[in-house]
Design a protein around this nucleic acid. Structure first.
Lengths: 229, 229
DNA sequence: GGCGGGCAGTGACTTTAGTCATCGGTCAGT
DNA sequence: ACTGACCGATGACTAAAGTCACTGCCCGCC
């Protein structure tokens, strides 16, 4: 089943402001890629020819150490774009990207995108806004890695997960952790075992309670304050 | 002595592409501020009304922990701009900024800058390029904080300093450290004492040699390889 | 129904980073 | 010339994070 490229582009915050006509032309030049879970989309340092739109699934951008440890920079899901940076500075891909789950993406040539930015100021502004957001989140991550301990970093991540994916009930919030400890670790800059223990400690401190992969946050305020928010 | 605002704007990568006429109009609306070393320009979270151009001196953007520890996000010197992010997403200042030395800056209202971006696509592209660079450097910092140890991080910083400010002579490179251990620590996410010891260790490992605040790098390759570059 | 792979949990240990206290030096201001 | 502030070095210690090795569980697949 071929995907609706026009609809996919319209669903992004980057391209949604373009007129139909332009969107159609762009969609015609978009190349579809299907990715299996874990498949690598591009490797950091590799020559970048364009950006990607995530149509379905999710893709993580990360850096890897020689020992194989990963640090996730950001994760993009359906409706987001990936690798805008090299479109505007003509450099290589800044990070490696791989599918977190089976995903479909569209590739757009950077020359096309750049040209459209000149012709359509509203696209340039959308791109600026998008990149501004990336810088903010990057600054957050830098702060958290540098100034907070693992338990606090994990608390922040749990809060973020609960707020986006969680359910609010009588006794607070609940989230089903879709991420493995390994994945949690790669997001907050630590390793599997430390996550396991940090989760225990948060529970012992009465900040969360865990049942299987279900995390309950009785007092959001308390957890947020512990996390230093 | 009043500064030449037009020349200051023209010296930035952001505004240098604008025609004289536009530059003059922008300069007329620019507000000059003089900062003493250590003086705070704005505080993270504070409502942002515009961006700043560094005319002379240098300004650091950083985050601070409750215990008073600092993490520098980036440092901007003459010819650079600061706080472009809130211009494009209308949010608060993402970090706190303070003068590293006595400095002069120009303030520009974000509405003016945003309007100019719409009217002058070349300015929008310059802004996109600038922000792309910020994202790259942020990703580097995230990687280094998360995946490398203090000694390696310090090695990277020393290399960067030597490459920008250092001198190349027969036996390799030499830099005079203008930064205190405290400042070095704030850049690589650690504390004063650890820097002192890390410098010793690098010297013991034969990667650098220190005399006072003068650091000599005999073998740049070796240091870079140790740093994981 | 058994097998293998991926995942979580944990004990024991090592290494790295951070803290605290102290000392000595330099330099600007009185 | 004296004083106080800032800076670097360092010893002694604590705490945090990471490593290694092993266990048990669940689930999908032959």
């Amino acid at each position: 089943m071929p995907i609706d490229k026009i609809a996919a582009l319209r669903a992004t915050s980057l391209f949604s402001g373009l007129e139909e006509r332009v969107l159609v032309a762009l969609a015609e030049r978009a190349i579809e890629h299907t990715l299996r879970r874990g498949e690598v989309l591009f490797v950091g340092g590799e020559d970048a020819r364009g950006l990607y739109v995530v149509v379905s699934g999710s893709v993580r951008a990360f850096r890897e150490s020689l020992e194989g440890r990963e640090q996730v920079i950001h994760v993009e899901r359906a409706g987001a774009t990936l690798a805008e940076v090299p479109v505007f500075d003509d450099g290589a891909y800044p990070s490696t990207a791989a599918a977190e789950e089976d995903s479909v993406v569209l590739f757009l040539d950077k020359r096309d995108v750049k040209r459209l930015c000149v012709e359509h100021p509203e696209l340039a502004l959308a791109a600026l806004k998008l990149m501004a957001g990336r810088i903010r989140r990057a600054a957050e991550l830098i702060e958290t890695l540098s100034l907070h301990e693992v338990d606090q970093r994990l608390a922040r991540l749990l809060l973020a997960e609960a707020r986006t994916r969680g359910a609010k009930d009588a006794g607070g919030m609940t989230v089903e952790l879709v991420l493995t400890n390994q994945q949690l670790a790669a997001r907050i800059g630590t390793v599997r075992e430390v996550i396991s223990r940090a989760l225990q400690r948060l529970q012992q401190n009465g900040l969360i309670s865990i049942e299987g992969r279900r995390v309950a946050i009785a007092d959001e305020e308390a957890l947020a304050s512990y996390a230093g928010e």
